[in-house]
Amino acid sequence: MSLSLKPTTPAGLVAIVVVMFAFGFMLVPLYDVFCEITGLNGKTSEQYQGALPISSIESTRTIKVQFVANRNDSLPWHFSPDQEEIQLTLGEQKQTAFHVVNTYNKAVVAQAIPSVSPAEAVAYLHKIECFCFQQQPLEPSEEKSFPLVFFIDSELPEEISKLTLSYTLFDISGTQTAGM
């Protein structure tokens, strides 16, 4: 076997080290891109920017959408969907809301992270308005209704008859970074 690669000095090897260190960080955007293409981790896309759906509905297919609300361990909020399940036609714009109460005696800022299951449906759920687009501050004992406006793309694959949209609230009071 003849190896053409013959490091006579460690310079080339140092280059490998630097490249691999950078590659470790490269995995972060690569992972995001990979997940965005495949929808694997159920992360939904940003606010829907296209034309709003026409009210005259082309499709007659209906689908069930279930809502799940979770709090991340330490967040002292009450958090629940107004409706646990709704039935809608593909392409139809729907509005629903989530009910929150800050049961804590301190102001808390929370961020909701959405997730869609099955992952194949991620690309077909379009949110026109969602409380997950902003950080949500609540005063002590404040009560609020979080609105959600969305529609399901009529291109949704045949085999999907039900999807679950779940939100997890994270307490980000201490670490207020600029958005998600």
Binding site: I16, M20, G24, N72
Partner: peptide, 30 residues
């Protein structure tokens, strides 16, 4: 040489998450 720098990268990300407010592994921050 190929694998250890990736370990260094991942613990560096942890360090940044813990002390510099990044959110590599923190779902609340994306």
């Amino acid at each position: 040489i190929a694998a250890m720098p990736v370990l260094a990268a991942v613990v560096t990300m942890m360090l940044m998450d813990i002390h510099f407010g990044t959110s590599f592994f923190n779902a609340g921050g994306g």
